[in-house]
Design a protein around this nucleic acid. Structure first.
Length: 117
DNA sequence: GTCTTGACTAAGC
DNA sequence: GGCTTAGCCAAGA
């Protein structure tokens, strides 16, 4: 393991389409970490607030933002999500409506062309 | 090397 | 929907 895992996590987060959200566990599984849900959160924190990665599309399995309400990241994440069309109900997001569908995404956007091109 | 903490998750009440 | 317990992995002191 190493810093390379973080880049792998960010790569998965970048795969999350706008208007959708993914859970830490889902990102961890996509990144090949499996139970590394915690590592995902750590990787997002390692960003330091960069806009290079859409970290705001990552929430916990309860559909809630793990960040504290008084944290600037909380407001930023929620605001960015709403800007993409994600609706917040009682401070929660309906994963059934805005939950990321990697498989479904291929059906809607088509099959991935591959890393080579 | 061990103990504690943390942007987590699942199950039970 | 909210709280508690158990499991998991990684970083920091």
């Amino acid at each position: 393991m190493g810093a390379g895992d973080n880049e792998r996590i960010w790569a998965v987060v970048c795969r999350i389409p706008p208007g959708s959200v993914a859970t830490y566990g889902q990102v961890a599984r996509e990144a090949g970490l499996g139970r590394g849900a915690r590592q995902v959160g750590r990787a997002l924190g390692a960003l330091g607030g960069r806009e290079d990665v859409p970290w705001h599309r990552v929430i916990n399995a309860r559909g809630r933002i793990s960040l504290p309400e008084n944290s600037p990241g909380f407001l930023r994440q929620r605001e960015r999500l709403e800007a993409e069309g994600v609706e917040f109900v009682a401070g929660r997001v309906s994963l059934a409506r805005f939950g990321w569908r990697p498989s479904l995404d291929e059906l809607l956007w088509g099959p991935p062309p591959g890393e080579d091109g």
